[in-house]
């Protein structure tokens, strides 16, 4: 058996930060566009938001593939059992939401009667037929999941900062190599 690595690969670091910025940008766009009055730019922003969501889903598949083929670096030896459990739950929840959020958006789009066509070129099948009541429910689901994701991301970031500032154990530096002590 290969020993547990001490660092994330460059690929893993790149995928992580791409996802972080992609998620925040797409979520902000979603919040901004939802209440705009109908205009050509609203239609454009909705299309961009959907294209971004589909792209992030593709990126997520890349991250899952990395995770399934690589062992992440070990947690600091001082980590308690309950903290290890919390880390597992947190990471599973983050991955789960990254799956469910684009799926709920795609289904909502179909239920509203607007097919998703990635970059205006690749049409995704409509798994639901048009039904405005279903669309209303899916909109609530999509929004709620995003608020949960945002809270978890803030918790995830707060934990990383706590590792860096309080424990000073190099956990944050694994994702931000420039922070590593020489």
């Amino acid at each position: 058996m290969t020993p547990t690595p001490t660092a994330y690969t460059r690929t893993a670091i790149a995928l992580h930060w791409l996802m972080a910025f992609g998620l925040l940008a797409t979520l902000s766009l979603g919040l901004y566009m939802a209440d705009l009055p109908l205009s050509p730019s609203k239609l454009q922003l909705y299309a961009y938001h959907k294209w971004a969501g589909v792209s992030l889903f593709g990126l997520l598949l890349g991250r899952l593939a990395w995770r399934l083929t690589h062992q992440p670096p070990a947690l600091p030896s001082a980590t308690s059992e309950s903290q290890r459990w919390l880390v597992q739950v947190m990471h599973l929840a983050l991955y789960g939401l990254m799956v469910l959020i684009p799926l709920s958006g795609w289904l909502m789009s179909s239920a509203k009667g607007f097919q998703t066509v990635w970059f205006g070129v690749l049409p995704l099948p409509d798994l639901l037929s048009k039904d405005l009541l279903v669309a209303e429910v899916l909109k609530e689901v999509h929004e709620t999941l995003n608020w949960v994701l945002l809270s978890l991301v803030l918790g995830h970031a707060a934990a990383a900062i706590k590792h860096h500032v309080v424990e000073r154990d190099g956990v944050l530096a694994r994702m931000l190599p420039f922070l590593a002590k020489p």
Partner: peptide, 11 residues
């Protein structure tokens, strides 16, 4: 009826 495309999406 009518059909058209909006941001590449058939409507």
């Amino acid at each position: 009826g009518f059909t058209y495309t909006q941001m590449g999406v058939a409507m």
